[in-house]
Design a protein around this nucleic acid. Structure first.
Lengths: 206, 206
DNA sequence: CTGTGTGAAGGCTTTCACAGCC
DNA sequence: GGCTGTGAAAGCCTTCACACAG
């Protein structure tokens, strides 16, 4: 849909706009200006207009943007138009918490299964979800056409597990392990590194 | 210590270098070149040298950088030279998991207490840590001189709790709630938004 | 000769300023 | 008059090229 390649940072902001739009929609607002929407998303109006311009002429001059139409456009761009299945690898503390954290569903993602090298270990917590052995991964991913994986395994095995994921056909990984994953072209990795975020904050406090 | 203001993105990379250095130190390596260290951190050699140059002449031409000296410099810059106390607000699924996640301590951070509007609710999980009522926050923060907070409360109350944190003297917040927090100058916020990370990945898979 | 430190060049994003449409 | 869409300018960050020190 986008004419040109959209900058990575801009794609990130699309999600912020999408969030803000959802709130507006809930309040039955029909039209919104770049000024108002950008404020809700925490960015500058011109930046928002530039970002949206990647998708063509979406707004009406003198009026603003149609909330429902813009929502639709962003949903399709972000691929949240339909529910995306996600697998989670590593059912430790963090992994279990993410499974139980229902915040994803509202945004169009569903964790459909958890995997662990030792499925027994995780069984003590009621996850409401099967914890399967790693051997079951390949068939599961293929059958359910899963493209997204959340990786919450120890750093020492992260690269190894990542290789497996790629082999199974996973196309995108949300990585919580403090490691730089090596993946082939065509596979995308986003890193969430909590220790680094804390260190970063630590730098800015005097 | 830094001569000039260091770009935010560069500060982030300092943590990557620090990680890589720790591994080298464990292997009793004494000196490392920008080429080798940058590869371990997943960046380009020139970038690493530029980043380190903010701290003055750290390396030896023709040789490289002293692992121990560089480690020391980065520890001081990042403020991880001594153990930093951190409070966590919101003892739900995610909050509890972070408390039990011991990955921070190695990096110089210790969650010293958890707070929740309803401390009873959280008590069923053994956190190895007291869960205190919000009323106890101010005195605790003041007494222990806590500057860092992790915020894992529902989005609906995040801004409100954030205001309280700021009033108590917290200087930096690691925010997991999907909200743009408004904070006064001098307070830093880093956002970790899992739904947005997933959406971002979702955009890049065809 | 090896490998750092750094001015200059290049590339990417953000912001400005304003033309154009409702 | 109000507000979007967009070329141009500015700002920021990364990369290059090379001088210089060990």
């Amino acid at each position: 849909m986008p004419k040109l390649e959209i900058p990575r940072k801009a794609v990130y902001r699309l999600s912020l706009y999408y969030r803000a739009l959802q709130r507006l929609k809930a309040n039955a607002v029909e039209t919104v200006s770049s000024a108002a929407l950008s404020k809700a998303a925490g960015v500058k109006p011109t930046q928002l207009r530039k970002d949206l311009a990647y998708f063509g002429q979406l707004g009406t001059r003198g009026l603003g943007y149609s909330v429902s139409h813009l929502t639709q456009t962003l949903m399709e761009a972000l691929g949240t138009a339909r529910l995306q299945p996600v697998v989670l690898i590593g059912a430790g503390h963090l992994g279990s918490a993410l499974v139980r954290y229902r915040g994803f569903e509202k945004e169009g993602f569903e964790i459909v299964a958890a995997f662990d090298a030792d499925p027994e270990r995780a069984q003590d917590v009621a996850l409401g979800l099967p914890v399967l052995p790693m051997e079951a991964l390949r068939d599961f991913v293929r059958e359910r056409q899963v493209k997204l994986a959340i990786l919450t395994v120890p750093a020492t095995v992260a690269q190894e597990v990542s290789n497996e994921l790629v082999q199974c056909g996973i196309q995108a990984i949300l990585n919580f392990a403090p490691t730089i994953l090596q993946v082939p072209d065509g596979v995308v990795v986003n890193n969430v590194d909590l220790a680094i975020e804390l260190e970063n904050l630590s730098y800015f406090i005097r």
